[in-house]
Structures are given as C-alpha cells and as structure tokens.
C-alpha cells in the first residue's frame, strides 16, 4: 500500500468501514510512514473536534408547545402543509423557481437593478459605436460621430505630400515640425498595417496641404 492509497482509506477507517485485511495493511503502512501517520492523526483530530461540539438542547416544555401547535393547526381546519416524503423533493427548486428567485433579487433592489441596466445599455452603445469606428479602435462619441466613410480618407500612399518617401522619413519630418499639427482639424484616425507594423494615423489639412500625423 502506498501513501495515496492509505490516505484514501482515512474516511472508511474513521467510520469503521474498513475490512480487516485492509485495516491490517493500512496499519502496517502507518507504522512505517511518518507522513501518513501524521496525516491520519490530523484527520482523526478534526473529526474528534466535531464530536466536542456541545449539543443544543430544548426545554421539556417544547413537547407541550408542539402539541399546542398541532391543536391550533387542527382548529384552523387542517390547512395543507407541503409534504416531505421524498428526500429533496421540497428542497430542490425547479429552474422556474430559481429564475424567479434570481429576478426577485433585482425587483427587491431597484438601485442595483438600475445600475446594472445602465451598465448594460452603456456597454451596448459602446459596442455599437466601436462597430462604427473604421479600425475598431475605441474613441469618444465626438470622434466617432462625424467620421467620414473610409473612401473619403486617402491612404498614405495616395496622400499628395507623401510621394514615395519611406515611412521613417515621414516620421522624422513630422517630429521636427510639431507646430504644423492642428488637432482640431484632424479627421478621425484609422490604422493601416505597413509591413506588419500597425500604427494609428491621423490625416490633417492645416492649410499647407494635407499631411499624415502619427
């Protein structure tokens, strides 16, 4: 018997359900294995602590109180009580009861319900706005609302001032002249993918001709 097998038998041994041959094999293992012996003592101690719990008691008057309730029940004409003949029949709620209980929580708590409703609506609007954004990039409603269609935004390759210059040259030029950028005139950005390098690009026309800003 190895340690894993021995520990699987703790429960059966504790409840005296272990056959004699298994008990003997387990004892031999425990005698030789310090780890399992310690684990067994802890297991047994845990159950022992439960046995130490004090018993709740009632007064003898309890019997009279029960009889009084029965008489009162009979006086009311034996109104029906839910039967409890089979285990769990009265304790396991149906899916309909579960749904009703769940919904009941929100009906009883209007403030959290309104907060949840607002959150759901907010997420739905955000998702819709995100869907409208050409590159699927999150932006504010102000940025998204006036967005032109993709066809109206020239691609970098077609922009008049770009010519055929490489990407890094463009970046250096723009970095050297930050004053050229007028953010209020920018059209919404989109994200081309150049050679696997995806970057956000804004297209601006500041009076000196349209340019790309990064």
């Amino acid at each position: 018997m190895n340690c894993s097998e021995a520990r699987e038998l703790f429960c059966a041994r504790m409840d005296e359900e272990l056959p004699l041959d298994r008990l003997s094999t387990m004892d031999s293992h425990l005698a030789a294995c310090h780890g399992c012996r310690t684990a067994w003592v802890k297991y047994r101690t845990t159950v022992g602590l439960l046995h130490c719990l004090p018993e709740e008691t009632t007064q003898p008057a309890f019997v009279g109180q029960v009889l009084d309730r029965i008489r009162a029940h009979e006086a009311e004409g034996n109104r029906a009580l839910a039967p409890f003949d089979s285990a769990g029949s009265a304790s396991r709620p149906s899916w309909l009861e579960s749904l009703r209980d769940w919904m009941g929580q929100w009906v009883l708590r209007p403030v959290p319900a309104m907060a949840l409703g607002s959150l759901v609506i907010g997420v739905a609007l955000g998702s819709w706005a995100n869907h409208l954004s050409p590159a699927g990039t999150a932006g504010t409603m102000a940025e998204v609302a006036p967005a032109p269609s993709l066809e109206t935004v020239p691609t970098p390759a077609l922009a008049p001032s770009l010519g055929d210059r490489p990407f890094q040259d463009l970046a250096d030029e723009i970095e050297a002249k930050p004053s050229d950028v007028r953010p209020q005139e920018q059209v919404p950005f989109y994200s081309p993918n150049w050679g696997g390098l995806e970057t956000q690009v804004r297209y601006s026309d500041d009076g000196d001709g349209p340019r790309i800003i990064f």
């Binding site: 709740e56 009632t58 309890f62 109180q65 029960v66 309730r69 029965i70 029940h73 034996n78 009580l81 039967p83 409890f84 003949d85």
Partner: peptide, 19 residues
Amino acid sequence: RAQEIAQEVFLRIYVHRER
C-alpha cells in the same frame, strides 16, 4: 429559529403521519 423549525418538523410529522 431552530426551535421554531423543530416544532414545524414535528407538526409535519403529525399532519403527514399516514404517509
């Protein structure tokens, strides 16, 4: 509350004794 529920247990035993 356990006292009340215990009374209910015995009440139900009596009411449904024929089951």
